[in-house]
Design a binder for these strands. Structure first.
Length: 589
RNA sequence: GGUGGCAUAGCUCAGCUGGAUAGAGCACCUGCCUUCUAAGCAGGCGGUCCUAGGUUCGAAUCCUAGUGCCAUCACCA
């Protein structure tokens, strides 16, 4: 529509003023003015001198005369508002009416894929609210990119090695008395997490004692026997000590099983898992190569560095003096490994904004190493989830546990639903499924609707809303439409034309038309918030339509069919959009 | 101190590449269920878009400086 209009405007300027215009600025007409699409006349003042209103009027008249879709126009200040004819709206709607995957682009198998990394937990801590934001964002961005037409691989790298893992292992050996998830009835990740906390408690106790014996705090922190033992355990692990490795494997399996349950509840999944125990040695050979090329340099003590001061950054270590890898080394190696494993063109890292600097450096190093794809690496950086009491700290117990939170949301949904009592005829099982759909819908929408880079304030005391701009509000509209469709006892497949549109119908069609663009936009901006906000606008528009005009009660059959079709399309879009957010949609509620 | 991010209604947030009188939700106040689900709709109240300059026909949006909050600047990950 816009492109054909643009051509007409260019042609009009040529005919009326004999000037070449190379682009036309369009925008949707504001609601308080008459019209559907607006041309900004100010922009033409560069080419044609004169009063913007006069120019607008001339061009408007030309368009009304020469473009079939334009039925009328008006000029306010420097804005030319064009009214598009009902016929055009109806025929455009008819084009998209039967396209079940409207707005969703099929994956192009010939194009290179995008890998999205998210979640990437530690195996010594259960997942909390911060992980929920990470998971929802990563999953949703992956789905959105997929919907924009690209092949996507979802992945996570599990931090399953290192001193922190040895801490929980050691604590379990000391205090565990052979406790297992089976014997305790605890989820595996929770059980292991408890021992990580137990370690910290014992460690702090030892530090206190050492200080009492006259050591400085710094000495005490280094000399605490339990810490030294954990360090020895790490060395044994690295040497492949059978007993340690067996324990490590056992405890990790407990954790993975626990994580899998949480992921399943959250509705996220992965195409491939990477484990740090397999990747922590990667990258060293690359560093050696880079050293030869002069990209890195060696200090006297043998450590290897890169100098990024010219880029406005600091010097950064890439290899320790003892020759072992640091976080950066590993990330360099892992990135390269991934491009080897898959036919990728793009790599998205879903990691909190506290690591902005790390990723800036990582991408820069990869670029300096000569990897073409380095410029296609993207850090999907997001703000922290804060509690009213401040930051969540697992060691201080001020975390909102992921499993608990999901249960609470389901409980709230159950309470509200039971009060409303609209679920006659549903089995207990169906009801429970529905409560989960609604509760999780509220939680996911609440988190995804805000711009990823902004921090979220989460108050566990004030439960997440179920009314207003929320997931359940949108789910409710979907359910209401389904109710209409169930009651529609006539065939509404017929293509309608020649009816006069109600203003609410015009607005609704305009909103529907935006969906494909929104999906593309969300993909290129890596922002599920755009999808969430669009869904909300669409639903607001629909609810207003729903309350203003009768649908099934419409007397004219053609109009009744058309309104049913519109409703159906809105429901389809809600479903598609919510699928991109990882939110399910109920038939009733 | 250096670097990066954020700052919009009492609270939580929208505001696309600069455009018309800055928008929603919550909260507070009014109306609307004998018609398709009231988790809804219609309306009211509420703004120094952090501050000061600049660019422009036009700035919440772009530039500069400042203020505040957060993150980061480890041979931790």
């Amino acid at each position: 529509m816009q492109t054909s209009l643009e051509k007409a405007v260019i042609k009009g300027f040529k005919e009326i003023y004999d000037v070449e215009i190379n682009s036309v600025e369009f925008q949707a007409t504001r609601k308080d003015f008459e019209g559907d699409i607006t041309i900004v006349v100010f922009a033409f003042l560069r080419y044609v001198k004169g009063n913007p209103e006069a120019i607008g009027t001339k061009i408007g008249a030309y368009l009304k005369e020469n473009v079939a879709e334009i039925s009328d126009f008006n000029v306010v200040k420097g804005f030319l508002n064009l009214v598009i004819s009902d016929t055009f709206f109806i025929s455009d709607f008819n084009k998209i009416k039967n396209n079940a995957s409207f707005g969703i682009v099929a994956t192009n198998p010939n194009e290179k894929a995008v890998m999205v990394e998210y979640s990437s937990p530690n195996t010594n801590k259960p997942l909390h609210l911060g992980h929920i934001r990470n998971n929802l964002l990563g999953y949703s961005v992956a789905e959105i990119i997929k919907a924009s037409g690209k092949k996507v691989y979802k992945t996570q790298i599990i931090n399953d090695r290192g001193i922190h893992i040895c801490k929980s292992m050691l604590a379990w050996q000391r205090f565990g008395n052979g406790e297992t998830p089976e014997s305790s009835g605890l989820k595996g990740d929770k059980l292991v997490g408890n021992y990580y906390v137990a370690f910290d408690k014992a460690y702090k106790e030892e530090i206190k004692q050492l200080i009492a014996q006259g050591k400085t705090e710094e000495e005490a922190k280094k000399q605490a026997p339990i810490l030294i033992e954990a360090q020895q355990m790490l060395l044994k692990w690295e040497a492949g000590d059978e007993e340690i490795v067996t324990l490590w494997k056992t405890m990790n399996q407990w954790v993975y099983k626990g994580f899998d349950e949480t992921y399943k509840e959250l509705g996220v999944d992965f195409d491939k898992n990477y484990y740090e125990s397999n990747t922590y040695l990667l990258g060293k050979d690359i560093v050696a190569e880079g050293l030869k090329k002069g990209i890195f340099y060696k200090k006297e003590d043998g450590s290897v560095w890169i100098d990024l001061t010219e880029e406005g950054l600091d010097e950064k270590i890439v290899l320790r003096s003892d020759g072992t890898a640091v976080y950066m080394t590993q990330d360099i190696g892992t990135a390269i490994e991934r491009f080897k494993d898959f036919d990728l063109n793009e790599l998205v890292y879903t990691v909190g904004n506290e690591q902005d600097y790390h990723f800036k450096v990582l991408f820069l190093i990869l670029e300096k190493l000569g990897f073409e794809w380095a410029k296609n690496c993207y850090h999907l950086s997001y703000g922290m989830v804060d509690l009213p009491s401040g930051k969540m700290k697992s060691r201080e117990g001020t975390v909102v546990d992921a499993d608990d939170l999901m249960l609470e949301m389901t409980d709230t949904a159950r309470t509200i639903s039971q009060e409303l009592g609209k679920l006659e005829g549903y089995s207990t099982e169906e009801k429970e499924g529905l409560y989960k759909t609604i509760g999780l819908g509220a939680l996911k929408y609440y988190i995804l609707k805000v711009d990823p880079k902004k921090r979220i304030m989460f108050d566990p005391e004030e439960s997440v809303d179920f009314a207003g701009n929320t997931g359940p509000f949108i789910q409710y509209t979907y359910a209401r439409i389904q109710s209409i469709l169930r009651k529609a006892d006539f065939d509404y497949a017929k293509e309608i034309s020649g009816i006069e549109l109600h203003p609410k119908e015009r607005e609704l069609i305009k909103q529907i038309q935006l969906f494909p663009e929104v999906v593309q936009n969300a993909a290129s901006n890596h922002s599920p918030a755009l999808i969430a906000n669009y869904s909300y606008d669409l639903v607001k528009e629909y609810n207003s339509f729903y309350q203003t005009v009768p649908i099934l009660g419409c007397e004219n059959l053609d109009e009744k069919i058309f309104r049913t079709q519109l409703s159906n399309k809105v429901a389809e879009i809600i479903k598609s959009a919510f699928k991109l957010l990882g939110i399910e949609v109920p038939e009733r509620m």
